[in-house]
Design a protein around this nucleic acid. Structure first.
Length: 867
RNA sequence: GCCGACGUGGCGGAAUUGGUAGACGCAACGGACUUAAAAUCCGUUAUUCGCAAGAGUGUGCGGGUUCGAUCCCCGCCGUCGGUACCA
């Protein structure tokens, strides 16, 4: 291939236009207040999920999503929008830090090198980014505001009455009024317990291999999502963000967004709302009570035992001397298990009897309390009532350990159930509930429990608070110092808090972060020392889309004017008009970003409660072997090679032509060639080679208007490409452009106006070639606009699409028998008469029972053969 | 197990308020141009029977609704993604 002659000079063309766009600032989006800002233009934000600039450079998966957004950005620009299409770098992160540990090279150096390489590669693809808005999460001018947002979280709480965040100062004022006698310390503890950013000593996911803790969302199947290392539970004092206060809103406010149902469902399930009741059990030999959460309070009569989690605070209390040894050793063995062992590998349920008993409030029966690791301390109350007849887990446990099973729900008739029935039915053996359907039984028992003061309705969520600190060097330091064992926020004026220069990035080997080694830095004052944890990588990506609107602002994270214009100018739900990225961020990034956005909205900094209006997830591109691309498989396609051989336009076009954006699809080595040939045909549609082998404008290009078939083909193409580009159905738009080129190549006179319109349609897809050819046309035929990518999108003429005649299908009993041609909108009688004279005639033996005519489409004769 | 998406030629895919299945591209085959090749251009290409005209079959499998089903309904099978003792 390297030796093959180029079919058109894409290398010269592409380099030339990229230089032109850069020097002219062609794709600069203006802010309100900028010279030349046009108030009449509607705004449109097209956003890519910004990349982590890894040392491997750009891969074809990046190119897919970025090309899709680039096409939409260019399309919307041509349709008269002020388009913001920015790019930046999510540059804090593990690989640079690990490289630093290995080589001693500062992560800053690695990061700068990699971002430079990424940017070069992006520019070679001709993406119309507004580079004046470029941001980098590791830039102090950026993370200053990440830290500032953390301070907002720290200084805020959620007001229960409104469900909205408010300044913590308001809470403090109210507290002082309501508890005038409380000690300063007591008040402070109360306030600290309500902050959206708080410190908690809880069992966290500690990954020894990575030397850091991880959020729940970062642990998959008991292993770290990054690297797949094992993770263990370890109690540590860590920063947490109170995302659970937003659980309900994160579900409700998802509704109006233009996201795929699949992603919405994933988020909803992650948040995991479930409705049920809390039931209070008294203990047989103690004053204390044991509260459980259940979604099936109607099965209370079937509760034959209870289970508490091994970490439950009452384990000690409940355990009798006789049982002490076995309980202690059971809890110890559970504590040593990794998450993986406790869930994945635990096929068999295990547990031990504590020796203690609780009393079932509905019948005063004594039921034994067990401790078992199938009950999680982190959900509900960490204790359950076990109804082995109607819960599969309880059933399994009871069966294994020989505990009694009492049926209290009868399945509705007809449905034969095997083993354990966990569906809805009719209550039996349940005293006052007998005969009631499950839903009614639930209501009745909850009311009864309420009257007795033994329980109430309750909603629970699976979502946990967000573990927000990491033991890393290469991340945002917290704007926090510790004094006398208490945390204290640093003032905004001290931001940004920068990490100290260090040579040794290695983990400490303990749970202390590497920053703890910078003794001078940690010593903030004589009595105060700095927080040495850093923020997780998600912090910077939680709000970057906001910063693009006002990237250089030094006095605010975004100006009010820029915020109002870009993020609040219309009434659709969600601010960013189009957001494209991989589905791997369906829960993590999108959940966290929505949470921060809502807090900033509540505090009055933003116009809308949701960040992203329309979300599209691009599908994975597989290797030519239909396997996931990976270095170890050796099936990675490098975009640089493709550009070298076929040009950026061909690469862009091929990736869009492969199939629907959202779909997973394999790379085909020959596929790019097909699109390269198409672009060469476009070139030769307008250019010819003379005898010296030089390219010149084709003699076939004429200054006249298209007529007849050519006219119709043009307008069909405008219509199809416009509609498909709107729908992001880029593959079918490209195929229509191929049809156009085929039709116009066959014509020996090619009207320049039609070619100009076609190049406009092509320009979002193959911007370099389109721009070059438009310029060639302008040189020979004055009157075209000077910058094709900023010209107006062509309009189609509905009249040009009409045909005088139309082909109809003739069917007999639904089978295709012939095709006939008639004038458009021919009346039913003439359609039937012509159809019955067609070749379908010989199949009309028998009685025609019915005749169906679909205007301009088909005729179907329903024939019953004569007996 | 549960949730979601999907299943169409040799391959990527197109077509659905139910109305000509296979657009467009790749690959393959045949031809033109060439000393030859590359590039380019033209043609064929779901499958079975047939010299042909034509006929039969065909959108994962089995049923159903309908004049008519790739599309709607019921039941299976398979692939991919997510999730996993959440009481």
């Amino acid at each position: 291939m390297r030796e093959r002659r180029r079919q058109y000079p894409f290398d010269e063309i592409e380099a030339r236009w990229q230089k032109h766009w850069e020097s002219e600032g062609t794709y600069r989006a203006l802010n309100p207040g900028d010279a030349g800002f046009d108030t009449n233009k509607p705004k449109y934000i097209v956003l890519d999920m910004f990349p982590y600039p890894s040392g491997d450079g750009l891969h074809v998966g990046h190119v897919e999503g970025y090309t899709a957004t680039d096409i939409t950005a260019r399309f919307m620009r041509m349709r008269g929008h002020n388009v913001m299409h920015p790019m930046g770098w999510d540059a804090f992160g593990l690989p640079a830090e690990q490289y630093a540990i290995k080589t001693g090279q500062h992560p800053r150096v690695t990061t700068d090198h990699n971002t430079g390489q990424f940017k070069e590669q992006l520019k070679r693809l001709g993406f119309s980014y507004d580079w004046s808005r470029e941001i980098n999460t590791t830039d102090p001018n950026y993370f200053k505001w990440t830290q500032w947002i953390f301070l907002q979280l720290y200084h805020a709480y959620v007001d229960e009455a409104t469900g909205k965040a408010r300044p913590i100062a308001e809470l403090k004022k109210a507290r002082l009024e309501s508890h005038p006698d409380e000690s300063a310390e007591g008040c402070r503890d109360y306030i600290d317990s309500r902050r959206l950013a708080y410190v908690s000593e809880v069992p966290v996911n500690w990954c020894p291999e990575l030397g850091t803790v991880l959020a729940n969302e970062e642990v998959k199947d008991g292993k770290s999502e990054v690297g797949g290392f094992s993770v263990e539970k370890r109690p540590m004092r860590q920063w947490m963000l109170r995302i659970t206060d937003y659980a309900q809103r994160l579900i409700d406010e998802l509704e109006p967004l233009d996201w795929s149902e699949g992603i919405k469902t994933m988020q909803r399930e992650w948040i995991g709302r479930s409705e049920g009741a809390e039931v209070v059990f008294t203990l047989a030999d103690h004053e204390e009570t044991l509260t459980v959460f259940t979604t099936r309070p109607d099965t209370l009569f079937g509760a034959t035992y209870m289970v508490v989690a091994p970490e439950h605070p009452y384990v000690e209390l409940l355990t009798t001397d006789k049982q002490r040894d076995s309980v202690t050793s059971y809890c110890a063995s559970v504590a040593n298990k990794s998450d993986l062992e406790r869930t994945e590998l635990a096929k068999e349920k295990s547990g031990v009897f504590t020796g203690g008993y609780a009393v079932n409030p509905v019948n005063n029966e004594r039921i034994p309390v067990w401790v078992a690791d199938y009950v999680l301390m982190t959900y509900g109350t960490g204790a359950i009532m076990a109804v082995p007849a109607h819960d599969e887990r309880d059933h399994e446990f009871a069966t294994a350990l020989g505990l009694p099973i009492i049926e209290v729900v009868k399945a509705t008739e007809g449905a034969e159930v095997e083993g354990c029935f966990s569906g809805d039915g009719t209550a039996v053996n349940s005293g006052m509930l007998d005969g009631l359907a499950t839903a009614e039984a639930k209501t009745k028992i909850i009311d009864w429990l309420g009257e007795q003061g033994r329980g109430e309705k309750k909603v629970n969520f699976k979502l946990r608070d967000w573990l927000f600190s990491r033991q890393r060097y290469w991340g945002e330091p917290f704007p926090i110092v510790w004094q006398d064992g208490k945390h204290q926020a640093l003032p905004q004026s001290e931001l940004p808090i920068q990490a100290p220069e260090m040579d040794d990035f290695k983990p400490t080997g303990t749970s202390d972060p590497p920053l703890a080694k910078a003794i001078d830095w940690v010593a903030y004052s004589e009595s105060a020392s700095r927080e040495t944890n850093t923020m997780p990588q998600w912090a910077g990506s939680c709000w970057y889309y906001l910063r693009f609107a006002d990237p250089d602002n030094e006095s605010a994270f975004i100006s009010k004017e820029a915020e109002a214009y870009w993020f609040g100018a219309d009434d659709q739900a969600g601010s960013v008009d189009l957001y494209v990225g991989g589905a791997e961020h369906a829960v993590l990034h999108l959940l966290y970003a929505r949470f921060w956005h809502k807090v900033l909205f509540d505090l009055g900094y933003l116009s809308k409660d949701e960040p992203f209006h329309r979300l599209v997830n691009q599908g994975l591109i597989l290797g030519p072997d239909s396997q996931k691309m990976s270095k170890s498989r050796g099936n990675v396609v490098n975009p640089d090679d493709v550009i070298e051989n076929y040009g950026a336009d061909a690469l862009r076009l091929y990736e869009m032509f492969m199939g629907p954006l959202e779909q997973v699809k394999p790379w085909n080595e020959h596929g790019v060639e097909g699109l390269y040939r198409f672009l060469a045909r476009v070139w030769r549609l307008i250019m010819d080679q003379n005898q010296e082998g030089e390219w010149q404008l084709s003699m076939a290009v004429v200054d006249s208007a298209p007529e007849g078939e050519l006219h119709r083909l043009l307008h069909e193409t405008i219509k199809k490409v416009t509609g498909d580009t709107e729908k992001m159905a880029y593959n079918t738009a490209i195929s229509q452009m191929m049809v156009f080129v085929k039709g116009y190549t066959a014509a020996d006179k090619r009207p320049v106006s039609a070619l100009r319109d076609f190049l406009a349609l092509l320009s979002p897809y193959a911007p370099h070639l389109a721009e070059e050819l438009a310029e060639k046309l302008n040189e020979a035929f004055p009157g075209g606009s000077s910058d094709l990518s900023l010209s107006d999108w062509p309009e189609f003429d509905e009249e040009a699409l009409s045909h005088a005649e139309v082909q109809l299908v003739v069917q007999v009993n639904g089978k295709l028998r012939d095709r006939i041609t008639l004038g458009v909108d021919a009346d039913k009688e003439s359609v039937i008469s012509k159809a019955s004279e067609s070749r379908a005639k010989e199949f009309l033996e028998g009685d025609v029972v019915k005749t169906i005519v679909v205007p301009n489409k088909l005729v179907n004769f329903v024939v019953r053969p004569r007996a």
